[in-house]
């Protein structure tokens, strides 16, 4: 009897927490498809707000994807070899490098953005282009890629595999392509999902770095929250959810697969 009571109260509490997280999302989704949120859902269901957001903000959304995939490309090309290098090299220098690239996780995005602005603000062409935002996103997401790949290296004894391939005559570059990368694939995939998700949703840095011509999806969101009617802001949020939730689901599935393995 007492156990039942404890169970029920814990379940109730957990449901309450879940409600706190889920109810606002449901509100936002309903608001995005309601003709008039103030009058409630009785006023009718419509896609007009979604269409309006698309017309207004398609550019921002497109730029966000461009930046997200460019960030992914850079973190892949730079981060995967670096993870290998850090793992194989080991020693104090590697630890210091790892520590430094992880710092952007602790330092607030605002500070990094200020630092970038104060350093490169004067380089007009760079400052005005989306590459400026890309630089910020790369700094911010790099540790996720590097660590995710290094975590795999730590579990598959990549050093011996590397030596095995070397003993069979493969050059360092061949080994990297034939043995290292294929065996690091789970980490590369997990890191990639993380990088794209984070880049798509990144606001703290991007808000400081953007220009009127380089607005991203979250910057547009903030814009719409400040200046648009609630239905439009909600519709925009809805679009964001639709883009980000599949990535989150994929990430969760990945994490579970990794655990059961």
């Amino acid at each position: 009897m007492r156990d039942r009571l404890i169970f029920a109260s814990q379940l109730g509490f957990t449901l309450l927490v879940a409600a706190f997280l889920v109810v606002p999302v449901v509100l936002s989704i309903t608001a995005g498809v309601t003709v008039n949120y103030f009058r409630g859902i009785q006023s009718g269901v419509t896609l007009q707000w979604v269409v309006q957001v698309w017309n207004l903000y398609a550019g921002e959304i497109g730029l966000s994807f461009l930046i997200a995939f460019a960030t992914l490309a850079v973190t892949l090309v730079v981060g995967v070899p670096a993870a290998y290098g850090l793992h194989v090299k080991g020693g104090r220098l590697s630890r210091v490098i790892e520590e430094i690239i992880t710092l952007p996780l602790a330092i607030p995005g605002l500070a990094i953005a200020l630092a970038l602005l104060l350093t490169y603000g004067g380089f007009g062409g760079f400052r005005q282009s989306w590459l400026f935002i890309l630089a910020g996103h790369v700094v911010f997401t790099m540790p996720f890629m590097v660590r995710s790949v290094m975590a795999v290296f730590a579990s598959v004894d990549i050093k011996t595999l590397d030596e095995g391939a070397a003993s069979l005559g493969a050059s360092p570059w061949t080994r990297f392509c034939n043995v290292i990368v294929p065996n690091a694939m789970p980490g590369i995939l997990a890191g990639s999902l993380m990088v794209v998700t984070l880049s798509l949703g990144e606001f703290n840095l991007t808000w400081m770095l953007h220009t009127p011509l380089t607005k991203t999806l979250p910057v547009g969101l903030a814009d719409s929250y400040a200046s648009m009617r609630l239905e439009v802001a909600s519709a925009y949020t809805l679009i964001f959810f639709i883009m980000i939730v599949p990535l989150l689901v994929a990430m969760q599935m990945f994490a579970e697969k990794g655990e059961t393995k």
């Binding site: 030596e163 095995g164 070397a166 003993s167 069979l168 360092p172 043995v179 294929p182």
Partner: peptide, 20 residues
Amino acid sequence: VPIEQRHVGMVFQSYALFPN
């Protein structure tokens, strides 16, 4: 000469077979 050019064959204690 690095190992890849020594033309040796090596059997590792952990075998180091490529899982991929």
